[in-house]
Amino acid sequence: MSAVADTPSRDTAPAPRWRPLGQADADWLRERAAPALRAWQDEWFEAGAFDVLDAQAFAPGRAFADGGACWRAGASLAAQTEPGAWKRHALAAMALSAQADAQVPDTLLAPLQAQMLDALLARLADALADGAPGERAGFERALPGDAPGFAAGGVRLRIGTARDPQLLDLYCAAELAWARPLSALPAAKPAAPTARAEALGDNPVRLSAVLGRCRLTALQLSELAVGDVLTTAQSLHEPIALRLHADGVAPRTIAHGRPGRAQQRLSIELTTLQQKRTP
C-alpha cells in the first residue's frame, strides 16, 4: 500500500487581495443584485416597482442600525428591514388593493410576508455569493448584536420602491466586492509630480483635533480629582477643529470634522476644508 500525500485542491479559490473599496465596487455589486431582484419581482408581482436605489461603500466595523429585523448569511452578507413595511406589498402580491388591509387578517398576511422576504434574500444570496471565495450560506434570522463585524468594510445596497425607499438594507462584505475583475480596467498612468509635490515631499506635519475648551480658576484647577467631569463649551453637534502646528507659527485651523472610529482607533471624518492659501 502506498501513501499519498495531501495536496491542496486546484479548485480552491485564492484569498482576495486587500484593496480600498470605491464606487466602482458598489456599482458592480448593484449590477449583480439587480437581475436577482427582477427575477423575484417577476415571481411575485404583475408589475415590478422595486429597485436597488442606492449603493455605497462603508467603513470597517459597521454594524446593524438600531431597530428593524436582522438577517445574516455567513460572514459575508447581512440584511435589515422593518417587517411591517412589507404589508402593502403582500397585498399587492395577492392582487389586492391597500383598501383591503382591514379585511385581510394578519394571520394570513404574516406568513406571506415572510415567504416573500425569504425568497428575495435567497435570490440575493445566490447572486452575490456566486463565484466569491468562501463557503456560501443562506440567510438566517439574527439579533442586532450578532451582525458580522465587516472588519474590512463593505458595500450597502438599499432596496426599495419610490414609495418605500428603505425597505431593505443589504450589507455585503468587502470580500464580495474584491471578486470584481480588474483586468479589464485600463491601467492608470502615474501622474507626473508637480512642483508643489516635489517641494513638499515626505516632510511630516503635526495635526491636532480640538475636542473642546473650558475655563477654570486656579482654585478649581488645584482641586481637580480623578473622576471629575469637565464640561466644555463645545456642543455635541458642533464640528471638531483640525489644527496644523508649525514651528514658530501659531496653530492654524485647516479643516473641520466629526469624531468616528476606524477599527479600534479614534478617527476624524472631514466635513469641511478651509480655503487653501496660495503661495
Rank of each mutant, 00 (worst) to 15 (best):
W40Y: 03
W44N: 08
R30T: 09
E43S: 08
P8R: 09
Q41P: 00
S9A: 15
Q23K: 12
R38N: 05
Q23Y: 01
A13D: 07
D6Q: 09
A34T: 14
A5M: 02
W40G: 13
S9R: 15
R38S: 07
T12V: 15
E31S: 09
A13H: 03
A3Y: 08
R30Q: 14
T7G: 01
M1C: 05
R17Y: 00
D25H: 06
M1A: 11
A24Q: 15
Q23S: 13
W28G: 00
R38D: 07
E31T: 14
R19A: 08
D27H: 14
L21G: 11
P14I: 06
T12R: 14
R10N: 11
S9C: 08
W40I: 05
S2Y: 08
P35W: 11
A13T: 03
D27S: 13
T7Q: 14
S2W: 11
W18G: 01
D6N: 09
P35E: 06
L29P: 08
T12L: 13
R32S: 02
R17T: 02
W44Q: 09
D6E: 04
Q41H: 09
D6T: 07
A26E: 08
A3R: 09
W40E: 06
A36S: 01
L37V: 11
F45L: 14
D27L: 06
S2Q: 03
L29V: 05
M1F: 07
D11A: 13
W40T: 02
M1Q: 12
W44L: 10
A24H: 13
A26M: 10
L29T: 05
R30F: 01
A15D: 14
P16M: 01
A34S: 15
R30L: 03
F45W: 12
T12D: 12
R19E: 05
D25Y: 12
A15G: 08
V4I: 13
W18H: 06
D11W: 11
A36M: 01
S2D: 01
A5I: 05
W28C: 07
A34G: 09
L21M: 03
R32K: 15
V4C: 04
L37Q: 05
A39Y: 10
A33L: 00
R17W: 04
V4L: 12
P20F: 10
A34I: 11
W40F: 10
T7V: 14
R32H: 00
A36P: 05
S9H: 13
R17S: 04
M1L: 10
P14N: 10
M1K: 03
D42S: 03
L29S: 03
P16Q: 07
W18A: 14
A26L: 02
R19W: 11
F45N: 05
D25M: 05
R19S: 03
P35K: 06
A3F: 05
E31Y: 10
D11Y: 09
A36E: 00
T12A: 12
A36T: 02
R10L: 15
A24D: 13
A39G: 04
T7F: 15
A34N: 03
L21S: 04
G22M: 08
P8E: 01
A5V: 07
P20N: 08
W18S: 02
T12W: 00
A34K: 07
G22V: 11
D42R: 10
R19Y: 02
E31F: 00
A33K: 11
P14H: 03
P8L: 14
M1P: 12
L37A: 07
W28I: 10
R10M: 02
A34F: 00
P20A: 10
R30K: 14
T7Y: 12
